[in-house]
Amino acid sequence: MIRDITIGQYLPGDSVLHRLDARMKTALTFLFVIMIFFCKNFLSLGLVAVFTLLLTVLSKVPFRMMIKSLKPIFIILVFTAVLNILYTGGGRELFGFWKISITDKGLYTAGFMVIRIICLITGSSLLTYTTTPTHLTDAIERLLSPLKLFKIQVNTLAMMMTLALRFIPTLIEEIDRIMNAQKARGADLESGGVIKRAKALIPILIPLFISAFRRAYELAFAMECRCYHGGDGRTRMKQMKLSARDFAAAFCVALLFGGIIFLNYKFKALI
């Protein structure tokens, strides 16, 4: 059960998106997310939606996986939709009942928000689906490297991210093991109220923390033995290189941006 949790899951493949430079992909994804909020009407948002759909097809990520990544936010989607339908003021009333009135503007805003969130999640999931965690941390490290000017230890941050990714599976296994050991001693993790359940977690959390600290301590030793001394003077085996493909991708995103601005401006009336 606990093994089903996947964080930043990567799907191996060799699509165009997989082959893009991770830095470019990360930066473009960031821009893409900003652009979603630039959309002012259904036309520009529609353009973004079509673009997202196109990317999904290009990434060769199975559609079913995309749906899966949307599942956890389903409740947020419904909540957003309902809230917007009920509380958007103005517009023509389509349906009135007791104190509730549903207007065309409400429906319009709700639909707009839902599409926006879907595009947002899909776009950013595509990044993690097509980029290995290692490349992603590398990319973030390199993109954030200007922050070094402000004495922020970007290397250290990236190392921490890598270690976290490295130890997630190990700790999940550990939780499984400890849970089984305590269940074998009759620990009841499944019944009772909130307080009883929270209490039942103690026999799992304490050993987990102790083990995590022990691991961290040993890991620090091992890293020192391998001459780790922070980022200064450190080289990297895997070099990142921008290719024509990456600039083409940047060009596409720029076109999209232009398209959004154009549609926003041209069809102001629809806002």
């Binding site: 093991r177 400890i178 050991a181 305590q182 074998a184 050993p207 083990s211």
Partner: peptide
């Protein structure tokens, strides 16, 4: 009794 039971 599991392996490395001291970790429980």
């Amino acid at each position: 009794c599991f392996q490395y039971p001291e970790y429980q």
